[in-house]
Design a binder for these strands. Sequence first.
DNA 1: CTTACGGCCTGGGTGC
DNA 2: TGCACCCAGGCCGTAA
Length: 300
Amino acid sequence: MPELPEVETVVRGLKAALPGRRILGVRLAKTDFIDDPAVLERDLPGTVIQQVRRHGKFIVLELGPARDGAEKLSLFVHLGMTGQLVVYPAEAPARPHTHVFLALDDGRELRYTDIRRFGRMCLMPRAEQASVLGDLGLDPLEATQQEFSAALHARKAHIKALLLDQRVLRGMGNIYTDESLWRARIHPRRLGANLTPKELRALYHAVQDVLNEAIRSRGSSISDYVDSAGEQGEFQLKHRAYDREGKKCFRCRTPIRRIIVAGRSSYFCPHCQPTPRRRKTRNSKRENRNSKHVSISRKR
DNA sequence: CTTACGGCCTGGGTGC
DNA sequence: TGCACCCAGGCCGTAA
């Protein structure tokens, strides 16, 4: 499942292969994950790839104008859950579920493969990038401690939901959210507004450390993730919480638990990441004393 | 406005 | 052997 470290790894590989290359032709198979396939077929051939960069979980290819006077374009690729963007020799056989083939002027092909097609691809003038990237939040590796803490402390939602919300932080997914919360010893159901300055500092460093270590390991390969050369990552070997239900916590040996938070499986250590106290309501004390009142129970 | 939740998209893996 | 079911991330609609 490509998140920030996986996308960063792909982008670094593409940076070594693509800038300066001209796109000669476009071939498409299934197109339901492309905003407007006809635009790709019409406008992509003839463009030169000037730069490759990452914005959150988006891969952005900055393209030069196809002809004099034409607009500069940007090609956005989101890998979704199972997307792969890999450079092949043109004669390499197409792998199953490969739906986009971009022929390059060096005899190679940039191909997009996506089993589930939960990814997204779109091409538009560079000046209109904001329609895709505009609502995205802070880059967790570029944000300052102050920006990071302010963004989370201002919200009452579960911290798990906030870390996953691309409008708050761009690039975090389920794996690195759980790994970061485990490192910072914060339960996924804590509320952003209830985190202490100390916890926010710990979380800031946990997020940056986890992401940087994962990038160094070239990402986590759980099911389908590979980089731009088709190679798997290794960070899945270093997971401490994610997908470890029932296995012992690396710190305290307590079995890792799995609960659903923000609609997502959330793995955590019930000892290191203690369950938040129930939120107090104005009447809670009185209600608890008046035994004839059944207190409003919150879902567990 | 914010937050929570359920449904939808797809198809590989799992378990019966 | 076949087949129903679960689940993943992002997005959207709805309700409180």
